[in-house]
Computed example of a mutant assay.
Amino acid sequence: PRTVLEAMSMGRAIITTDAPGCRETVEHDGNGYLVEVKSVTSLEMAMKKFIQNPELAEIMGTRSREIALHKYDVHQVNHHMMTEMGIK
């Protein structure tokens, strides 16, 4: 999802659903939390972790930025796509 990638590029910790597309962007307990789809309780628990440990947002945000730079860099993604298509 674009919004998750944008947040990661800005160095933000992520809370997102454990659903296809979303789960590939988050290392659970690494750069954020994956919550169960349609689970208010799961979302509440993830949010409480950041409230109770504010330093986690900075630590996980830094990890998000690292992942965004490494895994989702537009030049690397384009190179991979072109290589797979046999263009480069």
Rank of each mutant, 00 (worst) to 15 (best):
R12W: 04
I87H: 10
D18K: 05
E84T: 00
E66I: 11
K38H: 13
A13L: 06
Q76W: 05
Y72I: 08
P54I: 04
N53V: 00
M60Q: 13
V74P: 07
E24P: 00
I87N: 02
R23T: 07
M60P: 02
E58S: 12
V40R: 14
E44K: 13
D73L: 08
E84K: 13
A57K: 00
M10K: 12
G32C: 05
I14C: 03
V37H: 14
A68I: 09
T83Q: 10
K49L: 15
I15D: 07
V37M: 01
N78S: 13
E84L: 14
G11C: 08
S39N: 09
A68H: 03
T16A: 10
V35I: 15
I67S: 08
L5I: 03
E24F: 08
Y33M: 06
R65I: 06
L69N: 04
T83W: 05
I51W: 11
H79T: 13
E24K: 11
R63L: 02
P1H: 15
Y33D: 07
L56N: 04
G32D: 03
S42V: 07
M10Q: 14
T83R: 12
M85D: 00
M8W: 04
S39C: 09
E6L: 08
M81S: 04
M47S: 11
V26H: 01
I59C: 00
C22P: 09
Q52C: 06
M60K: 08
V35K: 00
G21L: 10
N78P: 09
N78W: 04
I51Q: 10
G61H: 10
N78C: 13
A13M: 04
A57S: 13
L43T: 14
K71P: 00
K71V: 10
G61F: 06
P1C: 14
L34H: 03
A7Y: 05
G86D: 05
F50S: 07
N31F: 03
Q76P: 03
M81W: 10
K88V: 09
E24N: 15
L69M: 10
T16Q: 05
M85P: 00
P54T: 02
T83M: 12
V35T: 13
Q76L: 12
H79L: 05
T17D: 01
M47E: 09
R2W: 09
A68C: 07
I59F: 06
G86M: 10
I15V: 13
L69C: 01
I15M: 02
I15H: 07
H70Q: 11
Q76H: 13
E36C: 04
V74F: 03
S9F: 06
R2G: 15
E84N: 14
G21K: 07
H28D: 15
M81A: 11
G61I: 01
L69P: 06
S9A: 15
R12D: 03
T16H: 00
E84G: 11
R23I: 04
P1M: 15
D18P: 05
K48T: 12
S39I: 11
H70Y: 06
K71S: 12
T17P: 03
H28T: 04
I51C: 11
T3A: 15
I67G: 00
H70M: 10
T16Y: 04
A57G: 08
E36L: 06
R12P: 00
